[in-house]
């Protein structure tokens, strides 16, 4: 097969490619992958420290960094058209809006629901007898 003739590094010029075609170099892909693996290990390690309240924020921060590099390099956002980036990022704005306002509200009436009498809670439906 003749493909390997074309497997030149993307640092080389791609003058023969259409202008919307931006191949990412293999080196960059591998770098990104090992960064992602490193961050995954990091998040498990950080979780082991037992930072208490900060735990969740640390985990989310690391997850967001991972998400950002996946978006930028694997999903080619780095080279993407402005409009497409705005379209995708705007979804996060609406998600924030949705979750934010909903949470703001439930905090206000939650007390009344926490008073739900626990002994009125229905018995669990048994799928398999635990004691057999």
């Amino acid at each position: 097969m003749n493909e390997h003739e074309h497997a030149h590094d993307s640092h080389g010029d791609h003058g023969d490619l259409p202008r919307y075609n931006h191949p990412v170099s293999v080196k960059l892909l591998l770098t990104v992958f090992f960064c992602l693996v490193g961050l995954t290990i990091l998040t498990v390690v950080v979780n082991g420290f037992g930072l208490g309240q900060l735990d969740i924020w640390a985990a989310l921060l690391i997850a967001s960094v991972k998400a950002a590099i996946v978006c930028l390099f694997f999903m080619h956002m780095f080279w993407e058209k402005g409009f497409n980036i705005i379209a995708f990022i705007s979804s996060l704005f609406f998600v924030t809006l949705f979750i934010g306002l909903t949470l703001m509200d439930t905090r206000a009436y939650r007390d009344s629901q926490d008073k739900f009498p626990l002994d009125k809670r229905p018995e669990p439906t048994v799928v398999r007898d635990a004691n057999s």
Binding site: F94, L97, L101, M104, D105, R107, A108, Y109, S112
Partner: peptide
């Protein structure tokens, strides 16, 4: 339109601020 959905919940026990 995305910022007004709570006006359907005025009588649901929704918080006054919201």
């Amino acid at each position: 339109g995305f910022l007004v959905w709570g006006h359907h919940l005025f009588a649901s026990g929704q918080s006054t601020l919201l």
